[in-house]
Write a protein that binds this DNA or RNA. Structure first.
Lengths: 217, 217
DNA sequence: GTCTATACACCGATAGAC
DNA sequence: GTCTATCGGTGTATAGAC
């Protein structure tokens, strides 16, 4: 792919590398205004470099964007990988993953907007990069899909459509934390406040277990 | 607001006005690539006009964008208003609205991406226009919120957080139909195909009523 | 109401000095 | 590895003829 490491990481640490600083700044800006809405001029200024210096680290604007996404997806994947998968019930596994995903999104307010954007800004990323990013994304989703299938096979979970359920889970978590000021207005509290994050988790858990109905069908 | 009608509608019809044709073209392009990703040159070309002619109908690019959004929100609101609100159960009302919203999104593939975009492209629309658009949006959401509150008061619905439930409903409907190629890949069928639209509705209905659990708690 | 011509800022990207 | 200077192109928006 087009966002390889030019410098394979200075293990001899000496503060954050320029590359990391560029990624951080670009992540914040792309999350707020999308690929087309951000100019490299602005990124460079935020990093404290000249515009042309960016091209030493990333050959094109697109490669920078892809590198930002790759870092986010990788980090999310790593955190999910670290979750213990003891022989639990499928719903308990699901609950654990929701817990980690919500925590990760809540701790990194750039993640949800950027992830959601790339789902329908598909036009900007070309086929090759998209395939690479989809690979990481698929690792994440396949974990959940497997748990759903096992739960259904065991009779623990209704025979739902697995893909539609994945879409619902993404909507309940990623969309919520990407909803910006609209979400703040709706909740009448900041979406990213500790209290609302807790409420969101609770809402998702209970929704998964009971839906809306008050009395069991 | 900044997107008023210069020509207050030619009731003497003679084919679609330039204004309507501009709105149609802009809607398709903005849905696909967002505000910053679309140039007026491209819009004008799609309409079959010169670039400068657009400024006769809309004073700025932003006013065109706002006009597109306003038209979508208004149409959605009108369709929801037409739904009979007989003295039904709260869950039945909810079901009716989900039915109409999903149909409207499914029949107009530009709606979901554009609606979802504006939620976190908040920076582009200024305060005044945003207030106007939020007004229409609020009319839509308040209907659902009222039904939820009534259902909770009547003991028909669990004592959920109303705002969080609204977010979940938006995620389940708007996000799903905005998920583009990613959604197609996940479902392994086109999101907008008749069969998948039907499945989505069914999925939402059953999820609202039961969640995921197979056996009543 | 549509056109051509134009203004001027910014875009992503390159060349080459240091 | 960062800089200045510059390239060609496009961005929104305006002026003014028709």
């Amino acid at each position: 792919m087009s966002a390889d490491n030019p410098t394979p990481k200075p293990v001899t640490k000496a503060g954050p590398s320029s590359r990391a600083k560029i990624l951080d700044s670009a992540e914040a800006l792309f999350a707020a205004r999308g690929f087309s809405g951000v100019g490299l001029r602005e990124v460079a200024q935020k990093v404290g470099l000249g515009k042309s210096s960016l091209f030493h680290h990333f050959p094109t604007k697109l490669s920078l964007y892809v590198a930002v996404l790759e870092r986010i997806l990788t980090r999310m994947d790593e955190r999910l990988e670290a979750v213990q998968e003891r022989p639990e019930s499928a719903l308990a596994k699901l609950r654990n993953w929701v817990d980690v995903v919500v925590d990760t999104l809540a701790e990194n307010p750039t993640y949800a907007p950027l992830l959601l954007r790339t789902l329908f800004e598909g036009d900007v990323v070309d086929r090759k990069d998209r395939a690479h990013l989809n690979g990481i994304l698929e690792r994440i989703l396949s974990r959940v899909a497997r748990a759903l299938k096992e739960g259904i096979a065991a009779g623990e979970i209704r025979p739902v459509s697995v893909p539609h359920t994945l879409q619902t889970l993404i909507g309940m978590s990623v969309y919520h934390f990407a909803s910006g000021e609209f979400g703040d207005d709706l909740l009448q509290h900041p979406v990213y406040s500790a209290a609302e994050v807790r409420r969101r988790k609770q809402h998702i858990f209970l929704f998964l277990e009971h839906g809306l109905a008050a009395e069991p069908a």
